[in-house]
Amino acid sequence: MAIDQVHDLQLVFRKLLHSMSHPGSISSFPEMADRVDFDLSCSDTTLLCAMALLDAEVTFHILSKDNQNLIGKIAEYTLAKYAPIQEADFVIVLQDDKESDILNAMDQCKIGNLINPQQSSTWIIENTRLSNDGVLKLTGPGIKSHAHLETGFPSVLWYSRNERTKEYPLGIDLIFTDNDGQLVCVPRTTTVEITEVK
């Protein structure tokens, strides 16, 4: 069965909204991810997030150059346009993207300006594992005291993310997705500390 563009994507959005307003809280829709019958080189969760957020008014960027097929498909399904990293509203990071490429992209992506901080990029990052059992300690709006998170995102990238969100309200908002229909968000307001022990 295919995806219901109205009700399924509404649910995906509500999960995104819940996770964005509760950073570090993992939302899931495994049953829906199973129903996705597209054969693309990105995970079903990533595709659902892209379909829920992208349309002809926004642009997206995919890091790897040899993914023309995926770029074409996402553009066809959502009507969003592909743009270079400096202009993209959404940046999609796939599982096999190299750390150095992600670092480069993070340096160049949009973080908004002080008058229009909303003109920043939102990242959809594919992951192998998401759990609340990790070395990242999150604090900030939306989190009661603190939350723990494991994303499989290397610490060098977290340092780079912290650097880009330093000048609040400028910054980037991250959405992590995995293969099992789970997602978790880390907006720019969240303070991410890398702790050695839990």
Partner: peptide, 23 residues
């Protein structure tokens, strides 16, 4: 659905920047 998407994107940005008025 296009209108919903645009408003949904504004809502997510608003949540990410508490108190800031997203056009």
């Amino acid at each position: 659905e296009g209108s919903k998407k645009e408003i949904r994107r504004a809502i997510l940005k608003a949540v990410a920047i508490p108190g800031y008025q997203v056009p």
